[in-house]
């Protein structure tokens, strides 16, 4: 029946609109949970979600040791050439030559935070940090060397 359907349409339409209005009305009257982050003011208490990807860093332990073997898997995985691994050869105590990193150059200005390098790394040497205030006055400052000066590879990481 046409007219019954018509009236049903009208009432179901009004009902669905009222459901929406009830939701926003609830938010309007319950003004407690605020999603606004007043950013520069709340810098001290700011909490970013765990999965937030700010920049690539290489964690070092207390003895200034990192886990990077210089395998260049991250450099190969990077879609836009952000990472450049410069390797050198260390002489081990028993006189053998061993490949190690001299510098791991990271171009923050090229990085899209796609996380592919972190996934590709076999020894979990690099991770995503949560820093996000990256603006600097000189573009050169965005080219970073991730390993600390004088750092060496952790024992037992191959």
């Amino acid at each position: 029946m046409f007219i019954v359907k018509y009236i049903k349409d009208v009432f179901s339409g009004i009902k669905s609109l009222l459901v929406g209005m009830r939701r926003t009305g609830y938010y309007f009257t319950h003004h407690k949970e605020i999603i606004t982050e007043q950013y520069p003011d709340n810098r001290d208490t700011l909490k970013l979600p765990e999965r937030f990807k700010g920049e690539v860093v290489m964690p070092h332990d207390a003895n200034n040791e990192h886990r990077c073997t210089g395998c260049t898997a991250c450099e190969l995985a990077c879609p836009n050439g952000t990472i450049k691994v410069v390797t050198k050869f260390d002489i081990t105590p028993d006189g053998k030559k061993k490949k190690a990193i001299d510098k791991l150059v990271y171009h923050l200005e090229l990085c899209t935070m796609c996380n592919l390098c972190i996934v590709a790394c076999p020894s979990d040497a690099i991770v995503m940090a949560q820093t996000f205030e990256h603006s600097v006055f000189d573009r050169a400052e965005l080219t970073k060397i991730l390993n600390n000066p004088g750092s060496r590879i952790m024992d037992g990481v191959e």
């Binding site: 926003t24 003004h31 605020i34 999603i35 606004t36």
Partner: peptide
């Protein structure tokens, strides 16, 4: 203000 409060903003 109304729009902000309805969208849980300030």
């Amino acid at each position: 203000k109304v729009s902000a409060w309805m969208q849980i903003r300030l």
